[in-house]
Design a protein around this nucleic acid. Structure first.
Length: 401
DNA sequence: TCTGGGGTCCTAGGACCC
DNA sequence: TCTGGGGTCCTAGGACCC
């Protein structure tokens, strides 16, 4: 018998409620711009930030050039002058050097970026306290309850950020996060873009699908294969076809996204789900021949992860490792720990158990360790109380004393 | 000349329990 | 004797983002 379900009376998804006013604020070429604060003489030149460690000093007082770099590493950020050569973040440095050999290469200074990041977020949240942290160089702000028109608010935000950091940013303001993220990209750098729902056909639909946050390389290729190039093409696609092609969840989301619909709230607080450390080796290491070196690296990763857990006040109940082989294939192995732990020795013990279950027959280029299933101090105390109760009832003697 | 390091979320199968 | 179905946890992999 056919299941009977009255879909016609099911309520619409919750798009109701008063329209919101959401800002996305994105720092312009963030890492490179911070570097230029220290090296104003490099303004206007193509500059790339990246590389694994300080570039070897070059003869005389010449600046380190991209062409002088040899080794593993990717572009972390490029100035707009460097981007003009086709260089972009994530690109291998060797490839970038082929495109812009004379570009200046600066090593990354993550402590400095962290300081400037905290400064711009403090300045923005002083004006708009409902702030969602989206990483080191971007935030969402919920401006719905603030007085003043959007253009004026955007100008005040940019001025506050500039005053606090000396840097420019780009801002998009629309009724939701998805559109604001798209809007902030439209007039970079140093831009303000304010859009309403009515602007979607003219401003959003001409953009390529890949401009949408959540449509990556794989989905872009798949869409392209069906002749869907722009967000407008995607908006015209049959939702049932999208679901059949991309799955129930992602297919339905693609349809909603193309029409600029997005209910996600601005989330001001969040507990981390996992904390990890990983490293790519200078040269590929053999699991057997380079056993001692790998062992030292694992211990170092465990100690750094333990320090992170300690500093942030978490314990983990699930440890995982990540291995990347010389052919760039990646495997992971996970293992639940007997109880919540945060010390390096316990992390290493769990990591070694994971390693035993992984193929170790070819050279490795990366080793990583991750602490998942995190417990806050309060959750840990609760776990302990429950374990104690079980122990006293004699059911599960997980606690020794 | 290959491709960093830190994350989130989703899917999917099997174990296990009720 | 031929066997249901839901819920949750564990594990592995993959897409995606900054």
């Amino acid at each position: 018998m056919e299941p009977i379900q009255d879909t016609a009376t099911r309520p619409e998804p919750d798009h109701a409620g008063p329209p919101r006013r959401i800002a996305h604020l994105d720092m312009d070429a963030f890492f490179a711009s911070v570097e230029l604060l220290d090296h104003p003489e490099l303004r206007g030149l193509p500059v790339v930030v990246g590389g694994r460690r300080a570039v070897a000093p070059v003869a005389g007082d010449a600046l380190p050039r991209l062409k002088d770099y040899a080794g593993r590493g990717v572009v972390t950020t490029a100035t707009y002058e460097a981007r003009a050569f086709g260089v972009h973040s994530g690109m291998g440095l060797m490839k970038a050097a082929a495109l812009a050999p004379e570009a200046i290469l600066l090593p990354a200074h993550f402590e400095a970026y962290g300081r400037v990041s905290r400064a711009f977020k403090a300045a923005a949240s002083a004006l708009a306290p409902k702030m969602e942290d989206r990483g080191i160089d971007e935030i969402y702000l919920d401006l719905t309850d603030l007085p003043g028109d959007s253009l004026d608010l955007a100008r005040r935000l940019k001025e506050a950020v500039r005053e606090a950091t000396g840097l420019t940013c780009s801002i998009g303001i629309t009724p939701n996060k998805l559109l604001s993220k798209l809007a902030s990209e439209l007039q970079k750098p140093d831009g303000i873009t304010i859009l309403g729902i009515g602007d979607i056909p003219s401003r959003i639909w001409p953009l390529p699908c890949a401009a949408v946050n959540g449509i990556g390389p794989k989905a872009t290729e798949k869409l392209k294969a069906s002749g869907i190039l722009t967000i407008g093409d995607l908006a015209k696609a049959d939702p049932a076809w999208l679901v059949a092609r991309f799955g129930r969840s992602y297919g339905a989301w693609l349809h909603e996204a193309a029409h600029g619909r997005d209910d996600r709230p601005v989330v001001t607080e969040r507990e981390p789900k996992s904390i990890s450390r990983e490293t790519t080796f200078e040269r590929d290491l053999h699991p057997r021949l380079d056993r001692e070196e790998l062992s030292r690296i694992l211990l170092d990763l465990c100690e750094r992860l333990a320090a992170d857990l300690e500093r942030k006040g978490y314990r983990t109940r699930g440890v995982g490792i990540k291995l990347r082989y010389d052919d760039f294939t990646t495997v992971t192995r996970d293992q639940a720990t007997p109880g919540p732990v945060a010390d390096a020795a316990s992390l290493r013990q769990a990591a070694r158990a994971c390693l035993k279950r992984a193929p170790l027959d070819r050279r490795l280029r990366l080793l990583g360790i991750r602490a998942g299933h995190l417990l806050t101090e309060a959750e840990y105390q609760e776990w302990r109380a429950q374990a104690e109760a079980r122990r006293e009832s004699g059911l599960f003697p997980e606690l020794d004393a």
